[in-house]
């Protein structure tokens, strides 16, 4: 069924924020095609009458009391940051806008 093109792989890489190389595009296109072919088998038994399972345990309503718990200090929060400034995470300029 699937016949995934190089362009499609490039689109996926863009969605997934991976700056893949041209060489990778070729390798991944072949491999994804092969894997998707193999996994498409799930369609054979997935009839409309079968409900999907999203969770391995049938729990519901797990809530936390609305009580403050100590978190991290600003120093701890920023300790792993590639760059920080004025108590904030410093990141390269953001294009586009908030959603």
């Amino acid at each position: 069924m699937p016949n995934i093109s190089r362009d499609e792989v490039a689109h996926l890489a863009k969605l997934a924020r991976l700056a893949v190389t041209d060489e990778e595009l070729d390798v991944f296109a072949g491999q994804l095609d092969q894997i998707l072919d193999a996994v498409a088998k799930v369609g054979e038994v997935a009839g409309d009458e079968i409900p999907p399972t999203s969770h391995a345990v049938p729990l519901t309503n797990v809530f936390r009391a609305d009580e403050i718990r100590p978190g991290l200090s600003q120093e701890q929060a920023l300790a792993g940051a590639p760059a920080a400034e004025e108590g904030r995470f410093r990141v390269p300029r953001i294009l586009g806008e908030e959603q």
Binding site: R64, L72, Q74, G87
Partner: peptide, 30 residues
């Protein structure tokens, strides 16, 4: 369980969960 307050010193109401640190998990506020 971080405090929900407006403003404040930056990054002082944060924890592994709301910073999205690897391994942290969410639990719903009832």
């Amino acid at each position: 369980g971080c405090a929900n307050v407006f403003g404040g010193e930056p990054n002082t109401h944060v924890c592994p969960t709301c910073l999205g640190l690897p391994g942290a998990l969410p639990v719903m506020n009832g």
